[in-house]
Structure formats: structure tokens, C-alpha cells
Amino acid sequence: MSRSDLTAGGGLPPARPSQPAQLADVLERVLDKGIVIAGDIKIDLLDIELLTVRLRLLVASADKAKEMGIDWWEGDPFLSRDGRDNRALERRLRRLESAAGLGEDEE
């Protein structure tokens, strides 16, 4: 039996009616936003090949946009508080540190 308990709760009202959300919108929010909690099952979303491809696409869009001249949200601290690159680098650094036995294994 394939049991998937990560399901909608029984007694809650149904999600507000709207057209089914685009997967990219859901993944962007669910995998890249929200409060980051390091539970005790280690999960590194950056290690997801599929996600890495998707994130790469998201990042690649910046270059593409630059080509098109619509990179307006880049480098504008008022408009963009996008710390994605820094966060990704930080996570990578943390992983390397812990692999090298440096730093504390924290969230």
C-alpha cells in the first residue's frame, strides 16, 4: 500500500477556489520561500537534481532577461531582496565546512 500521509487535513475547509496553481509557482514558494527549519531528517533541497535544474532555470532566466534587457529587478535593493544566490552559497559553504569537519552543524 502506498501511503502518503502528507495530505490535506480532514476537517479543514477546502482550499479557496481558484484555478489550479502553476507548478512553478508552487515549487517557487514551497521549496524556495518560507521559514527554513533544519529538522532532524536532513534534507538539502539543493541536492535535488530536478530542483537544481529548476533553480538553474530560475537563475538562467536572469541571464536571458539581461540579454532581453529586462533585468530590471537585478541590483535594485528597493525592488529585489532576493538573497537566493547568497543563501545558496552559504548553504554550500556550510556543507563543505561540515564535510571538512569545520564549523558547527547547524541549520
Binding site: A8, L12, P13, A15, R29, V30, V36, I37, D40
Partner: peptide, 26 residues
């Protein structure tokens, strides 16, 4: 990912909620 979102959507309809990123497991 959709199930995670769906639960949060339903919660948000009845309460203030702080969404966690996918994969907080204890």
C-alpha cells in the same frame, strides 16, 4: 509540494499561519 501547499492554504483560510519551507521533519 502541492500537498504541503494545500495544507497551508487550508490553514491560512482559518488562521494566521507562518509557512515553513518543504521538508521540516522530526
Amino acid at each position: 509540494a502541492r500537498a504541503h501547499e494545500d495544507v497551508l492554504q487550508r490553514l491560512a483560510a482559518v488562521a494566521a499561519v507562518v509557512p515553513f519551507r518543504f521538508g521540516a521533519i522530526y
